[in-house]
């Protein structure tokens, strides 16, 4: 389950518009990599290119290579559906399926894989995923209630449970705490710490302290200029990035002098 990602010379386009240019990055297994940078710098776009979710937007395409355990995600004959089953995603706003119960939400991805789960197996999957997402104690007596009956923080943990129930290798998180209060945020951050023992985690965040708290390595993205594409400015161990970054732009951003 130890999956690393190597990206080389990745350009991301929306139609003819170059959104992100020339990204080279290596994302190690069983660690948390944080993407920081000002709004519109392409970090979310780049994150979504890691499981081909950006293709859900019309006209989006990439050039370059994304190697997951040596296999190119954009290689010939690779089905984006299979890619997304291996590389799960948690979104900015909690998005449990409103028409499904809590248990059905957790099982949603499993059912997709065409699996016929027996009742007992399904119950086990639900319990295990909810336990790992730190939600079990709060919802175990109301698994048949709608997912939308939970609080925002609980909904987000439900979405994490739903993502890990399919047992992906990698978990991408796109500002998972930006719609949550500080207490829910800290619960999710603790969860990320626990999950990194099993998963490769990539998280986009606008919260500098969060990046510092949860990540092992940090990547700073920035626009090359107004109207120019976003690019990866600097990548390094989180401690070094926050204490002593190489690039003056990184230092300025982290210290809050711009962006």
């Amino acid at each position: 389950m130890a999956t690393s990602i190597d990206v080389s010379d990745l350009n991301i386009y929306y139609d003819d518009f170059l959104a992100v240019e020339g990204v080279n990055i290596s994302i190690p297994a069983r660690a948390v990599t944080a993407f920081i940078g000002p709004s519109g710098c392409g970090k979310s776009t780049f994150l979504r290119s890691l499981n081909r979710m950006h293709e859900a937007i019309r006209g989006a395409r990439v050039e370059g290579k994304v190697l997951v355990d040596g296999e190119d995600l954009y290689g010939r004959g690779i089905d984006p559906v299979d890619v997304r089953r291996r590389i799960g995603m948690v979104f900015q706003r909690p998005n449990p399926f409103p028409t499904m119960s809590i248990a059905q939400n957790v099982l949603a991805g499993r059912r997709l894989n065409g699996e016929r789960l027996k009742k007992a197996e399904a119950d086990a999957v639900v319990e295990q995923a909810l336990r790992r997402a730190g939600l079990w104690a709060e919802v175990k007596d109301r698994l048949d209630r709608p997912g939308s009956s939970l609080s925002g923080g609980q909904q987000q943990r439900l979405c994490i449970a739903r993502a890990i129930a399919v047992e992906p290798d990698v978990l991408l998180m796109d500002e998972p705490c930006s719609a949550l209060d500080p207490i829910s945020t800290s619960v999710i951050e603790d969860l990320i710490h626990e999950l990194k023992a099993e998963y490769t985690i990539v998280i986009v965040t606008h919260n500098m302290q969060q990046a510092a708290r949860v990540s092992d390595q940090t990547a700073f993205f920035n626009l090359a200029g107004v109207g120019r594409p976003g690019r990866l400015v600097e990548l390094g161990p989180t401690e070094k990035m926050f204490a002593n970054p190489d690039d003056p732009a990184t230092e300025a951003y982290i210290q809050g002098r711009f962006g």
Binding site: R84, A108, G109, A163, V166
Partner: peptide, 8 residues
């Protein structure tokens, strides 16, 4: 997107 991200 939630469904697509699960591999639908």
């Amino acid at each position: 997107e939630a469904a697509l991200a699960l591999g639908a």
